Every structure is written in structure tokens, then in C-alpha cells.
Amino acid sequence: MARVRLAGQGDAGTLTDLRCAFLEEMGQHLPDGFADRLRAWIEQAMGAGQLHAWLAELDGRTVGSAAVNPFPHLPSATYPTGQGWYLLNVYVKPGQRGDGIGSALMAAVGSAAREHGVDAVTLRVAPGARNLYERAGFKALPDDAMYMPLV
């Protein structure tokens, strides 16, 4: 069984490696220097409380991760206290998929969110991951997410 723990700033290198693997698996070609910039961003964001991350470890090896960006939200029925978390970079190394590691990561995120009084955790579903999130209690939203690229 995998052990899931809250990551600290000292884990920025591991989180960087896992995020790069995730992005490359999603088909992104990462430019030179990306990993260094990402690691600096992770260190800064974790220090400022703008990123919380968890690592899954099995037999002394890191095999997965999950991260959230906390965000304020104008209070609504879904966000009565105006506190949300955006879940991203849920990643389990290919050799360990199907072993319950993703579910263990989701349980850790859900538990921490409840402890912090978070109203809702939101995400964008990666291809093939919908069942994992539905098993963890996520529901589909009726609106279509969109974004406006600025770079």
C-alpha cells in the first residue's frame, strides 16, 4: 500500500519531475529551461501558501503526486465561505496505475480540504481519469470551462 504525505519545499525537485512527466504524457513539448522555471515557481508558491501538494510513496520510491492551488471565490451556493481549491497534476507513474494510488491521493486531498474548511475542490478532467474522480466524489459541472490565452 502506498503512503501519501504532504509535500514540503524540499520536495520541489520531485514535484517538478512528476509535473514534467505529466505534461509530456499529455503531449506537451517542454522548452529548454522549463524544469528550472517550474521548480522555482513551485518553491515560491509553496512558501507563499499558493500551492499544496501530496506525494505517494511505495517501497521508498515516489510514484505519484497531486497538487492544489487554493483560491478565493465570490461566495455562492457552491462556495458559501468563498474558499476553493483547484486540483491539478494528479499523476501516477504508468507502472503503478490501477494499484489504488490515485484513490489514495484523492483521499488525502479530500481530507485536507475538509480540515481547511474548503467549500469545493474543482478540476479539469484529463482523458481517461473521469472514473478516478467520480469514485472520489467529484460531480460533473453543467458549464463548459473555457480560457483565454494571453501569451
Score class of each variant (00 low, 15 high):
residue 1 M to Y: 04
residue 4 V to C: 00
residue 5 R to I: 10
residue 6 L to A: 13
residue 7 A to P: 10
residue 12 A to H: 03
residue 12 A to V: 05
residue 12 A to L: 02
residue 13 G to R: 07
residue 16 T to Q: 00
residue 16 T to G: 00
residue 17 D to I: 02
residue 17 D to N: 08
residue 19 R to Q: 02
residue 19 R to G: 00
residue 20 C to G: 01
residue 20 C to L: 01
residue 22 F to M: 11
residue 23 L to W: 01
residue 24 E to Q: 07
residue 26 M to A: 15
residue 27 G to L: 08
residue 28 Q to V: 10
residue 28 Q to L: 13
residue 28 Q to H: 14
residue 30 L to F: 02
residue 31 P to F: 08
residue 33 G to A: 05
residue 34 F to D: 00
residue 34 F to C: 01
residue 35 A to D: 01
residue 37 R to Y: 04
residue 38 L to A: 04
residue 39 R to Y: 03
residue 40 A to G: 12
residue 45 A to R: 15
residue 47 G to I: 11
residue 47 G to K: 09
residue 48 A to N: 11
residue 50 Q to M: 13
residue 51 L to W: 03
residue 55 L to G: 07
residue 57 E to D: 14
residue 57 E to P: 09
residue 57 E to H: 10
residue 58 L to D: 14
residue 63 V to L: 06
residue 67 A to M: 11
residue 67 A to N: 05
residue 67 A to Q: 08
residue 68 V to T: 07
residue 70 P to R: 12
residue 70 P to C: 06
residue 74 L to V: 12
residue 77 A to P: 07
residue 77 A to G: 12
residue 78 T to S: 10
residue 78 T to R: 14
residue 80 P to K: 06
residue 82 G to I: 08
residue 82 G to D: 03
residue 82 G to Q: 02
residue 84 G to P: 03
residue 84 G to L: 05
residue 85 W to R: 09
residue 86 Y to N: 12
residue 86 Y to G: 10
residue 87 L to Q: 03
residue 88 L to P: 05
residue 88 L to H: 14
residue 90 V to P: 03
residue 91 Y to T: 01
residue 92 V to M: 04
residue 92 V to R: 04
residue 93 K to P: 02
residue 93 K to V: 12
residue 95 G to V: 09
residue 95 G to E: 14
residue 96 Q to F: 11
residue 96 Q to I: 03
residue 97 R to C: 00
residue 98 G to K: 07
residue 100 G to P: 04
residue 102 G to S: 03
residue 104 A to W: 02
residue 105 L to Q: 02
residue 105 L to K: 04
residue 108 A to L: 06
residue 109 V to K: 00
residue 111 S to H: 11
residue 111 S to R: 12
residue 111 S to Q: 14
residue 112 A to G: 08
residue 116 H to Y: 09
residue 116 H to N: 13
residue 118 V to F: 03
residue 122 T to G: 12
residue 124 R to E: 15
residue 125 V to M: 13
residue 126 A to H: 11
residue 127 P to E: 15
residue 127 P to V: 14
residue 128 G to Q: 11
residue 128 G to Y: 10
residue 130 R to G: 15
residue 132 L to P: 07
residue 133 Y to H: 07
residue 133 Y to V: 10
residue 136 A to M: 06
residue 137 G to S: 06
residue 138 F to V: 09
residue 139 K to V: 15
residue 139 K to L: 13
residue 139 K to Q: 14
residue 139 K to C: 12
residue 140 A to Q: 15
residue 143 D to A: 12
residue 148 M to A: 13
residue 150 L to S: 10
residue 151 V to I: 11
